[in-house]
Design a binder for these strands. Structure first.
Lengths: 199, 199
DNA sequence: CCGAACTTTGACCTCAGAGTCAAGAGATGA
DNA sequence: TCATCTCTTGACTCTGAGGTCAAAGTTCGG
């Protein structure tokens, strides 16, 4: 029974992983359950044994992906708790960019959730974003409070950072490995400028 | 005969405008020709008299929207040719954000063109983006050459700017008019930081 | 090895939305 | 006014993809 449960969880995990892949590549509208099923070498019907429908599967994919992403950033921030603020923020930016480019190149599309989705689902996704946002917000506001950073508006700064990071894959995933690393470094350094003290 | 031609052109213009509206709101996949037709008070069939299909109409819409957008920015840059470089760039950023937020809130979705499209169409769209990019690139590189701006990397800087501007609608189109204007101002000012001379 | 619980299948239903077309309605010009 | 060209319609087909389900297959505990 517990054996069964674990097996089921594993199955769900795999389905969600495949779904995250497909939705991440194609975006919500253009993704088909048929394709998700194909990548798992099963048939569409079997997905419905685990998930009520496309929306639910997509939500699960978004949540899994988002949680994983956030946790890794949180862990990184903890690990660098003693580093200078600027360096910690730089590391966070760099890591975020790397995850976006190397692992979830189409997360942007995935997170463009249709307006038609039930409010509850959209709400859960918003929460996820908020938690994710908080990792960076904490750094920025603390830096500002300490007088090390200066920003026009915390919100605008964070939005700009997130936008740039999430679109990074669009322009640097086609680069060769070396140029890509350089581009990611450049972007992280560039984004640091957003909080640098003026003058 | 010429009368007929002009009438036809006008008709095409209107259709493309309506299509740009719909595709701009919903993105490619979620848009339907039915809805485009509805906004023109005609029926779907009539669209096929002017366009071969959805792809072609979407391409025309993207081109029109992109050209209009670019031309307005170019005109703005010309109009401020004598203004200080920083102010000209600020005006461009602000205008770009305003167009994105107020007129084409889902342009981001629209430009995420399906990979399945013919290469020729994708190529034309890439050209459009290049021309658009050039408006900002010119300002930034000139400013750097003049020693007024400093950047880590022109590419990274432009990418960050474009990303932030194109995602602006996602977070400020739901705001009330006043707060929205403030948010757009803040974002423009924030992005200026990306080129500000350091120290 | 059996029966029960769990899982997968594939045929099927449904429906939205792309695309077609014959027929008719409107212009245009002689 | 007639003939022709231009345009619009609405009913039609077709396809793809979401969703359902009874039946068959598989795994597990005893």
């Amino acid at each position: 029974m517990n054996r069964v449960q674990r097996k089921r969880d594993e199955r769900v995990r795999r389905i969600v992983a495949a779904a995250a892949e497909v939705f991440g590549e194609r975006g919500y509208e253009a993704s088909t359950l048929e394709e998700v099923a194909e990548r798992l070498d099963v048939t569409k019907g079997s997905l419905y044994y685990y998930f009520a429908g496309k929306d639910e599967l997509a939500t699960a994919a978004i949540e899994t992906l988002g949680t994983d992403w956030t946790e890794r950033l949180e862990a990184l921030a903890d690990a660098r708790a003693d580093a200078p603020r600027v360096e910690r923020l730089r590391a966070l930016l760099r890591e975020h960019i790397a995850i976006a480019v190397l692992e979830y190149p189409a997360a942007l599309r995935l997170f463009l959730v249709p307006d038609s989705w039930p409010a509850a689902l959209r709400e859960r996704i918003r929460d996820l974003r908020r938690r994710h946002d908080l990792v960076f917000r904490r750094e920025v506001t603390a830096g500002v409070a300490a007088g090390e950073f200066a920003v026009v508006s915390v919100d605008a700064t964070l939005q700009a950072m997130h936008a740039a990071m999430s679109q990074a894959p669009l322009w640097c995933s086609h680069l060769a490995a070396e140029a890509r690393d350089q581009a990611m470094d450049d972007l992280a350094t560039t984004l640091l400028r957003l909080v640098s003290s003026p003058r």
